[in-house]
Design a protein around this nucleic acid. Structure first.
Lengths: 113, 113
DNA sequence: AGCCTCCTAAAGATTGAACTTAATTAAGCA
DNA sequence: TGCTTAATTAAGTTCAATCTTTAGGAGGCT
């Protein structure tokens, strides 16, 4: 008698948050709705890469998607994120992810040449 | 003038929690100290596999290690885990990880033959 | 209709995570 | 010292995550 699930595939929220990239994306849509394009422009990776990450976040139920014309607008789902807010805010205060992303970029540059 | 870090390597706590296996381990040592052997016996994987996971948790600062004779005793670091407790308890109430581990085991069995 | 713009889907490469088995360290005890 | 128990380290394999490039779909304009 259960209601059919809204999402076909469901992902592990903590696995979704394991990626610094996705945490940065989440931070971008934390307090204001943003289009996929806006988000992609904030990073130094390809557009599809961001699109894929947005999907992971969406399937984990951490962000919501809304279509407006040709754009898709994403924003954080604060209801789902409630029990994680304390941790994320603390982490962002220390700018952990920014440092981690920089370190990873450096590492990639170092090993590729 | 900073104090030298107690851990040589430091890991991402959310990355550490991304693994259902490690979350189950964490649950085991949540309210009582347990030896590595005790923990390993609770799972259907090799001993070194558990040892590696314990290290990840330790380097993420989520568990503490104490040596007692030939044993090593692990327990959850509730200070570090404080901002994540709400989420973990909720997840464990729903037994999400147990189901996920079972599903993954099934999947492995299915695809390997 | 045609042609933008915006974005996702598909396919393939590369990297790293999580396991395996085998070897090693370290403590306790005869 | 040598043997046993307890656990990690090392080396190698497999699989999945994340990126890339290329192709496709859907809405809005003229």
């Amino acid at each position: 008698m259960g209601v059919l699930p809204a999402q076909v595939t469901t992902r592990d929220p903590l696995l979704a948050l394991a990626s610094p990239r996705r945490r940065e994306i989440l931070r971008l849509v934390w307090s204001s709705e943003r289009s996929a394009g806006e988000i992609a422009r904030a990073f130094d990776v390809s557009w599809p890469a961001i699109s894929q990450n947005l999907r992971v976040l969406k399937e984990a139920g951490l962000i919501t998607e809304r279509r407006a014309g040709t754009s898709r607008l994403y924003s954080a789902d604060h209801v789902a994120l409630k029990p994680l807010e304390a941790y994320l805010r603390r982490m962002w205060l220390r700018n952990v992810d920014r440092l981690r992303l920089l370190a990873e970029a450096e590492e990639r540059k170092r090993t590729s040449k």
